[in-house]
Design a protein around this nucleic acid. Structure first.
Lengths: 147, 147
DNA sequence: ATCCTATCATTTGCATACGAACAAATTTAT
DNA sequence: ATAAATTTGTTCGTATGCAAATGATAGGAT
């Protein structure tokens, strides 16, 4: 039994638990926990997305990669630095543009992609487990509409 | 015209743009941008949620507040510290438990709540603008199911 | 040839976010 | 009453995430 009694005063006009921002945060938290438990190599969600995006493109500059993976230039820099430190990606200066460095997968990184995709499918499956097939499609459709 | 030709190789078995985690991140990004443009006082989403939760409870310990607002103990500490610095909340030591400090709204903080709720409703409205009334309810229902 | 603008990459600052480890205080179990 | 388990709050480390400022390079317009 709790020593500290709860005195809850709810405003019927503003229920935090029903606001879209709060729900997005909670859903993201649950997904992140599932992700961390399932993923190979201790990768983070952004590192994962970044690797997948590189695998879809032979050559990408760092900034362009950030746009492809929906990350700020400052964010993608840190992500790429950490992927470099893990030996999964490498950067080569662009021969035609001295500002650019092209990011690509290392052999180790390329060898990991198939496993990561399998992990990703399991993570999506577990996150969506409470939903029916129809509900999963509806959720994806509605989320895409508000992006 | 782009000098740097795109060579995109998509794997039909794993489409990042359809994965729930990626969509949640994108939707969260758009919501965060709308939030920041609309909110009073430069509050962040976590600071906002925390203030609303305090307004629902006369007395809350810091850790308990974190649980109410779905934040880690380390996270809620930083949030409460910044709300203290803004003069919106205050902490009083619990008379019956020397570990606890009870967090409450200051007068300034309490005076802000009504405005914040109005901001919150506008933010939800703008975020959900692409959806019909039925779709909004469906999205909220499905998100709640996967939390 | 030069100027303007855009792009690329980096850096700094602020604010989440969470795991892990810790000390102090409290509660529960024995 | 005392030992064990739990709760509270703190600190450290790592990783996003974005705004803003900086410097270098590139491309187009005059």
């Amino acid at each position: 039994m709790s020593k500290h009694a709860e005195t809850v005063t709810l405003d019927p006009d503003y229920v935090l638990d029903e606001q879209i921002g709060y729900l997005l945060r909670l859903a993201g938290q649950r997904h992140a926990a599932i992700f961390q438990a399932q993923i190979s190599d201790g990768l983070t969600p952004t590192q994962f997305s970044t690797l997948i995006r590189i695998s879809e493109h032979e050559q990408v500059s760092q900034n362009h990669l950030g746009r492809l993976a929906a990350m700020d230039v400052a964010t993608i820099k840190g992500v790429v630095d950490r992927l470099k430190a893990k030996g999964l990606v490498a950067a080569k200066p662009d021969p035609g543009d001295k500002r650019r460095s092209n990011i690509c997968l290392t052999e180790t990184g390329a060898a990991l992609i198939a496993d990561l995709k399998a992990d990703g499918l399991r993570i999506t499956e577990e996150t969506l487990a409470p939903l029916s097939a129809g509900e999963r499609k509806t959720l994806a459709r509605l989320l895409r509409k508000i992006c």
